[in-house]
Nucleic acid binder design. Structure first.
Lengths: 338, 338
DNA sequence: GCTTGGCACTCAGGACATTCGAGTGCCAGT
DNA sequence: ACTGGCACTCGAATGTCCTGAGTGCCAAGC
């Protein structure tokens, strides 16, 4: 029983602290929340919670503040992701439905997420690795210059220029085009790569075919595109609170390093539905007062990429989690339709 | 003669203030710069400069700080853009030469600019409006679904999906492809649009042709792409100084509003080589302590787009101007070669 | 007619002391 | 097991004083 109340106290502390941004004391706690006990009792509970490392005092004679461990417990056991209101759902749907292409979907998602959560939003572009090849086009731009266009099932389009040694007749071009299409269309990237490679055995390699294939393989295995992310809502950093140098600056720097961002978002395991990384739990100690709420998204049940939000450890976890989950769902649905 | 010395005093004040970030007094001024007069004389000059509105005192008994008007005079008359060192030039050249496509050029430029100036850098993607059509490709993705790919002289590629009513034979597709290419290739966007429109007179409009042409025209006149900008070096905002709420927050917001950014960068007049907009001179009073140094760039002598940096009014104008100019030149050269 | 040294004046910012109050820990009583 | 009471702590707010950088002005000098 006391155990249960202790958790209620912890929840109340987290909620109050998130709302007010100030250490919360025993008296204010019993007043604002309807726990039917006296401040003294709460004090005892708080002392116990502090012993266990869930809360801490900035200084003697100040209220308590949740520790990372406290937030962790709060997130794991004291909260359920509250569903979005129907109005919010409708807003999400209409905004995302208006998107015209993949870029637009990503950009709108970022905006949406940052507005819903009032935090910095990060959306990874769908990775190549799990998508399939929808079409390959080979275009003669000039006698010795081809443009290769690679269209993927995610809607992404990559194009590359190829310089070739011999002039190519229209028929040969058509043959080449149909060859690569027969070989690659419908395949997952990884398999398309091996299939394409098999087309050019070392011996009789036709140089033009080889060049085109090489370019395609290159485009498919280009991890640059895997690293693309969209960031939005950086202005919300302004509400980060006091510690500008210690918290905002490193975060601003991280936001420009897409590789770091991707690491923060985490791996796209489709297993865990929603990842919450609190403060020091992350791999960067300069971001120790920053939390990340992220999840995978993608058509079907496979996670193609991740999206999420980044904010101060002192943040509204239930709300953020709900928003992240909702946006991920709608984006996945849209990608499904496309 | 006094006039000349006054300007020297103003220059010294600007330089000192930019370096130290603190109001500068008469004594420190004569010590740190070699003006061969006494502090009292400088005081007289300063009083005069203050009367004329070039400098101001934050409070009585404090040193002087340049006003926007003072910076303006400094930029217009007291400084010449100092050329970059050869080492810097070489660094710029090698970094930009490594770019593989247009996106990469833009991204590298942004990084480069922000690192050179330690400010926030902004680069506008080359606009459609002045570029010419290099190639149009029409691809049948599925029986009733075409992909139209538009390739421009700037290296930009736009693709759109078209749903059509009738199934299209390969021959018809080839005809259509060659028709639009004959019509549009080599033309400036605006003329390509009118030429394409002329292809589909109201009467006998073939619905498929009409659909493709409409999509092309749409892609060409899509101003969304005109609004694309890349932003980099936001972490430099951390060095902005004290006034976080009043200066950094509005700027962070502006950085997310690409339309606003473009307005800040200014119009791409190829006439003025380098635009410096100081503080309140800009259109947004919330950015009154922010200056913009920008210039146009593009292949040949036409300005395709703009790039520049955004920073506090108290910034190193000569250095920033030099960096902006140098980067613009190299980017233009690279676009020229492509 | 500039320039200069001198001098009185101003005022932000730092050092220090004081007060105030929210909050705690503990203990004895119910 | 909870509660009321009480002494204690200490950060934040307030007030006062002082210092020093910086100014404006004036009369003297080149």
């Amino acid at each position: 029983m006391q155990e249960e109340r202790r958790l209620a106290v912890l929840r109340a502390i987290v909620e109050d602290y998130v709302a007010t941004e100030e250490p919360v004391g025993s008296k204010a706690l019993v007043e604002r929340h309807g726990l039917g006990v006296s401040p003294a009792t709460v004090r005892n509970d708080m002392a116990a919670l502090e012993d266990e490392g869930y809360i801490t005092q900035p200084h003697t004679s100040a209220g308590r503040v949740p520790t990372d461990k406290g937030y962790r417990l709060f997130v794991d056991r004291l909260t359920t992701v509250k569903p979005m209101s129907t109005a919010e759902k409708r807003a999400i749907a209409t905004i995302l439905d208006g998107a015209v292409d993949l870029d637009d979907v990503v950009n709108r998602s970022v905006r949406l997420l940052s507005q819903l959560t009032r935090q910095v939003a990060v959306v990874q572009y769908p990775t190549l690795s799990r998508s399939t090849v929808r079409h390959v086009e080979v275009i003669a731009l000039a006698p010795y210059r081809l443009l290769v266009v690679l269209i993927l099932s995610t809607g992404r389009v990559e194009q590359r220029l190829v310089e070739i040694a011999e002039e190519l007749a229209e028929d040969d071009l058509a043959d080449l085009r149909s060859l690569v299409n027969r070989t690659a269309v419908g395949e997952v990237i990884a398999e398309a790569v091996t299939a394409l490679r098999a087309l050019v055995p070392a011996e009789d390699a036709d140089p033009t075919t080889a060049a085109v294939v090489e370019t395609l393989v290159d485009a498919m295995s280009d991890h640059r595109s895997d690293e693309r992310v969209a960031v939005g809502g950086a202005a919300n950093l302004a509400r980060y609170g006091d510690n500008f140098d210690s918290a905002v600056r490193p975060l601003l720097e991280a936001l420009e390093e897409h590789v770091i961002l991707l690491k923060l978002l985490g791996e796209a395991h489709s297993g865990e539905p929603l990842t919450v990384r609190i403060g020091h739990e992350g791999p960067y100690q300069s971001l120790s007062s920053t939390s990340v709420v992220a999840t995978g998204y993608g058509p079907g049940d496979e996670a193609f990429a991740r999206l999420g939000i980044v904010g101060p450890t002192r943040m509204d976890y239930p709300g953020s989690m709900a928003a992240v989950r909702a946006v991920a769902r709608y984006v996945s649905r849209i990608l499904d339709e496309a």
